[in-house]
Amino acid sequence: MLHLKRTVPLAIAFFFVVALILQYFVPHPLSEKFLGMTQKWAIIVVYVSLLLGVGSLFQSHLRKIRVQTPGWGYSLVTLSVFGLTVLAGFHSRGNSPGGPLQWTYEFAYSPMSATMFSLLGFFIASAAFRAFRARSVEATLLLATAVVIMLAQVPLGAAIPGVGSLSAWILGVPLTAAKRALMFGVALGSIATALRIIFGIERSYLGGTE
């Protein structure tokens, strides 16, 4: 049983890591076919994993409705709207133009999505107002860079001579340098994690200690 619980998943992970690495270095039609097949498989597995998420959402909201915890009405809203959207989707057979799902996307999903993200603008700005104090060289640099980048993106700032060029230089030179160094770090971290998976050292994805 322990083999099924521990050895088999480790072997599956090992097989796919090694096979996909080999595939990259051996560009044979067979390996290309293997890559295409695995990519298709991954998309399907991810789709089914969405059902796991939906199931979990249902479990959590149904529990709230059953126990009638404070605010259970909101759970009812979530589940009803989810059901209505899915019905609208089946009625439209996907997202056919002019169908109810496209209408829902245009008049409900899209405005709410944009509003939700634009709300963050207020909170970032208010947090910055409280946190951005030019107390040190580092803080001043951060503040000045943010101001230049923001100014360059509005007509008033772009009209100030030099702001556009300075912003372009910041984005093209120092930003590239810092981003590149961070990319090195992230890449080396990812490779190290992948190697840990290959050698079976990284087992946190198995979930348990068994």
């Binding site: 759970s75 809203v77 989810f82 609208a88 996307y105 999903y109």
Partner: peptide
């Protein structure tokens, strides 16, 4: 907020 969650997941 709850409408957003429901619509997004349904979509």
């Amino acid at each position: 907020e709850n409408l957003y969650v429901g619509i997004t997941i349904g979509y």
